[in-house]
Design a protein around this nucleic acid. Structure first.
Lengths: 150, 150
DNA sequence: CTAATTCCTCTAGTAACTTCAGGTTCAAGA
DNA sequence: TCTTGAACCTGAAGTTACTAGAGGAATTAG
């Protein structure tokens, strides 16, 4: 008997992933191309839904698409070493920890800025003053670019 | 006597901001258009460098370009209320705190994943298993989209 | 059978830049 | 003064991970 199939809309509501995003994941090769109906509409199998859930969860954990791609490649090869998958997770963990450390510093600096507001007019406002001069900061690292985003 | 001027390269090395980024900030209206030489090259004044430093510092703090634009508009009007600038800083602080909270959860989950690795082959690897199934998580929130990025 | 819903492709837009191609100007040394 | 080579110019396209919209075709409920 033929396996049960699902429309893209069904997959969407089953996973909480938008229809457009499902098509997008297919377009960048994270999801395999499903069969189509005679009228050219996608019909998914249960395995596609599993794969999509994997992707969504990994994204939620902050893994980049590229990392997920590697993980999927590993998964396709059940005899592959587990170490590589573990390594990817470890790298992510490090990235997340770094972000937390950075954001914690930023929060502290913003707290100081907010606390220092006392003036009435902009001209007396410490917020503007502190923003205008990096040297007011504790951590005086003057890095090259500003890519230090959260 | 005419004020001292600086080439874009000079401004770049004085601030640590890439030349292209300086031009980009001008194109989106964060930096005013400087005078030009006869040969069409930009010549900046000290005030431009101050403005750029303000922008860079605010970006480092995680402020969106739009927020910086508002701050600059406030700054152009020295009689404006300080409260608005303070409010922008407060909003940023809240955003940063939210991000930290979210990332802390992610870090915990990744720690569990990494700690659970024991298999030798992918087929036995807990990393893949846990990634594949969201229900392994403590916080079982199954949100609609995956925009929960750092 | 028809109308409403869902689906299709393709293009463009988002943030905040970076990179590239192809050409021009400037400044310093010979 | 001339000549290089570094620095500069513009405009377009690339980056990440999607989202949104146009315009049209397929499916499905009644």
């Amino acid at each position: 008997m033929p396996e049960r199939t699902f429309s893209i809309g069904h997959v969407s509501s089953a996973t909480g992933c938008k229809v457009e995003t499902i098509r997008f994941y297919e377009s960048i090769g994270l999801l395999p191309e499903p069969e189509r109906t005679e009228g050219n509409q996608r019909r998914y199998l249960a395995k596609h839904i599993d794969r999509l859930r994997f992707i969504l969860h990994a994204r939620e954990l902050g893994l980049a698409v590229e990392a997920i791609r590697q993980l999927i490649a590993l998964g396709e090869n059940p005899a592959a070493s587990c170490e590589q998958a573990d390594e990817i997770a470890r790298q992510q963990l490090q990235l997340v920890r770094d972000k937390i450390a950075r954001l914690t510093q930023l929060a502290e600096e913003l707290e100081r800025i907010v606390a220092s507001c006392s003036g009435e007019r902009i001209a007396d406002c410490r917020v503007m003053e502190v923003l205008a001069d990096h040297s007011h900061c504790d951590h005086g690292d003057r890095r090259g670019n500003v890519r230090s985003r959260a």
